[in-house]
């Protein structure tokens, strides 16, 4: 079963300073944790995909205007309190395993090496067989 683990950053719930205020070693430790995690997921035969997203400062919001032409709003958006930081797609035995992986990723270290405990949303990917109707 495939699940997507969405790492959502929320300035409302985050009780740690932004990454720009961390020490180089704290940032390196965080990056190393993510690298190790992805390596382990691959070695366990569970990794489908993992991607980090560029910071929302460079984001654009696009909608179609009249005639379908793109109407683009450029970031940064002052009102952004929550943004998607990245995601994993894992192919696992069951939902319990997806939850276990999300909890592990949530322990990624931040300032002082303490776990950030960032929230991850766990969503099933629509890839199951339909019932024989």
């Amino acid at each position: 079963m495939k699940y997507m683990l969405l790492m959502q950053f929320s300035s409302a719930t985050a009780d740690f300073p932004g990454i720009t205020e961390w020490t180089p070693d704290e940032i390196k430790a965080h990056i190393a944790f993510m690298g190790r995690t992805n390596k382990t997921l691959a070695a366990d035969g569970e990794l489908v995909d993992a991607q980090g997203l560029a910071m929302p400062d460079t984001a654009k919001v696009v909608r179609a205007g009249t005639d379908g032409a793109a109407v683009v709003t450029e970031g940064p958006f002052a009102e952004t309190k929550e943004f998607l930081a990245g995601w994993w797609i894992v192919d696992v035995e069951d939902e319990a395993r997806a939850v276990e992986l999300a909890a592990y990723i949530s322990t990624a270290p931040g300032p002082g090496g303490a776990p950030l405990n960032m929230p991850l949303e766990v969503r099933q990917v629509m890839s199951g067989p339909p019932a024989d109707l």
Partner: peptide
């Protein structure tokens, strides 16, 4: 067939 990367499938088989 299972829409996973080849490396992932290779690991699954070897495990």
């Amino acid at each position: 067939a299972f829409l996973v990367p080849e490396a992932t499938m290779g690991q699954r088989i070897s495990r």
